[in-house]
């Protein structure tokens, strides 16, 4: 009932994800992203605890594969879930449980991975991956472009309700974190939200972070 993409920017090292689902407020459950550490993105029958727990393994230096294996061992409902773990290096390990509904699948690329279930077809994942690879620019814009493209070719078989795009840069300072919790066209609205508001925080993000850290007014 969800399709998503996670990625690491080769230039900045930032981690980010974009998700669309026919599930209200999907952003409240997943993904978990920590700068310089990695991403845990769980979907299907989401287990929200996998994110914070998995992040502790990544923080200890475990690789994506090791973290995924450990998380699966401790999750009795593993066959109901899809799970991407991306580590510090941008390597991804992905698991698609057999009890997810078709079409389901995942694909691991260079510094990115896509996954989806209850999709209209395999092309949702293919288009999402291809669009990400072929789009230039900031990580958040590449993620959004991929999500929009996947949405256009069919996306979620059951319909649409929520979407998110999230990129982290500095720990504790939200960078890109836009969410649509309930809308008929969540992905389109998400893209619009991004375009409308990017200049508020995103374009002067580091200036804002520095201002907060040094205690000056941010104008």
């Amino acid at each position: 009932m969800t399709f998503s993409i996670v990625a690491r920017c080769k230039e900045t090292g930032n981690f980010g994800a974009a998700v669309s689902s026919c599930f209200p407020a999907v952003g409240a459950y997943s993904p978990t992203i920590k700068p310089n550490i990695g991403i845990i993105a769980s979907q299907g029958w989401v287990n929200p605890k996998l994110g914070p727990v998995g992040m502790t393994y990544l923080e200890k230096g475990k690789t994506a594969n090791e973290t995924l294996n450990t998380l699966l061992m401790k999750d009795p409902g593993r066959e109901l879930r899809q799970l991407i773990v991306m580590d510090h290096f941008g390597n991804s390990a992905v698991y698609t449980g057999v009890e997810n509904d078709d079409y389901k699948g995942h694909f691991v690329g260079d510094q990115y991975a896509v996954q989806g279930n209850l999709l209209t077809g395999e092309d949702v994942l293919t288009v999402m991956a291809e669009t990400f690879e072929q789009t230039d620019g900031l990580l958040e814009e590449r993620l959004l472009a991929a999500l929009v493209a996947a949405d256009k070719v069919g996306g979620d078989k059951r319909g649409k309700q929520a979407a998110l795009v999230k990129v982290v840069a500095e720990d504790g300072f939200p960078y890109v974190d836009f969410r649509v919790d309930d809308d008929d066209e969540p992905v389109q609205l998400l893209a619009k939200m991004y375009e409308t508001n990017r200049n508020v925080l995103i374009d002067r993000y580091y200036e804002w972070v520095e201002a907060v850290k040094t205690g000056v007014k941010f104008r």
């Binding site: 230096g61 475990k62 690789t63 594969n65 090791e66 580590d87 510090h88 290096f89």
Partner: peptide
């Protein structure tokens, strides 16, 4: 060091 450890673990596996 981080890369080495990760690579070593992956290699061992």
């Amino acid at each position: 060091e981080l890369t080495y450890n990760a690579l070593r673990n992956e290699h061992q596996q």
